[in-house]
Simulated scan of single mutants.
Amino acid sequence: MNMLAIYVHPNHQSLSHAFLREVLRGSEENENVTETRVLDLYEEGFDPVLVFNEKKRRRDMHADPQLSRHRELLLWADKIVFVYPIWWGRPPAMLMGFIDRMFASNFAYRDKGGMLPEGLLKGRSVVCISVMKGPTGYLQYWLGNAHRILMRKALFNYVGIQKVKFFEFGNMESPKGKHERKLDKIYRYFRAVAA
């Protein structure tokens, strides 16, 4: 299994980065994982701004030469792992901009005239690891599970990815946030996970 970890946080001293390290540590010890690559959106200076004009047309997004390496990575991966914080009840704008630019028609999906498109990223699985200051139940109960609905239904299912797992860790700025236990949970999951 080829695994792509997409890290979305501007600080390598953050708790999000600690979770990324546990993803990598666990996957290194997992015989099911052939290779793991990391795409660090902030470090590489990924431009999340979606632009359409007379030179850049929406229908040509799937072939944007600036994003060819990113498309190759997404196609290479059997499992895509997103590691990001929850800010204002949703993923960071950097991640949403990545999604806007990368999950384009004729790359991630193909319109076929009906209500739902043909998902072109079938056969892959996704894991979303997110951390937040507030309690974990905040997303589920206060925001009506908007985060999971956005990521699973509006994005991944739409492009053909049916297997989506979430780890949502709350109270992460509290000294009682059980950080070590949560980090160990991620390590153990990736040490054993299969496709």
Rank of each mutant, 00 (worst) to 15 (best):
L74T: 04
A195F: 06
V164T: 10
I186S: 03
G89I: 02
N53V: 12
V49I: 15
R37W: 09
K185V: 05
G170C: 03
T34F: 13
V38C: 11
G160I: 11
P92E: 06
G45V: 12
A146S: 15
L75P: 01
V23N: 00
A108M: 02
H9N: 15
R59D: 13
K185I: 03
A104G: 04
R37G: 08
M151A: 11
A104P: 00
F46L: 07
E180L: 12
H17S: 11
E43A: 15
G144H: 05
N32W: 09
S68W: 04
G123D: 03
D111L: 12
R21F: 00
H70K: 11
N157S: 09
S130Q: 04
N32R: 13
K122G: 03
V83C: 03
G123P: 00
A104F: 00
D40F: 08
H62R: 08
H12Q: 14
F52S: 08
E168N: 13
M96Q: 09
N171R: 11
Y141G: 03
F166S: 09
R58M: 14
R37D: 11
D100Y: 09
M61F: 11
L139W: 00
L73P: 00
N157F: 06
K133R: 14
M115G: 08
P92L: 04
Y109E: 02
S105K: 12
G114M: 10
L183H: 05
P48S: 14
H17L: 07
R188Y: 03
V127A: 02
D60C: 10
Y141V: 07
V193A: 05
N157C: 05
I80G: 01
N32E: 11
R191G: 08
A192F: 06
G119Y: 04
V8E: 01
P48Y: 00
L41P: 06
A154G: 05
I161G: 10
G113L: 08
H62K: 12
I149T: 14
I149S: 04
W142S: 12
V159R: 07
Y7T: 03
E35H: 13
L75S: 09
R188L: 13
L20G: 05
L39T: 10
E44C: 09
R90W: 00
N32T: 05
K182G: 05
K55D: 04
E35A: 15
N30G: 08
M151H: 06
G45H: 11
I186N: 05
A108K: 06
Y42M: 06
K122Y: 02
G170E: 04
S68N: 11
G45T: 09
Q13R: 14
I86Y: 00
Q13G: 15
M96G: 04
R110H: 06
I186H: 07
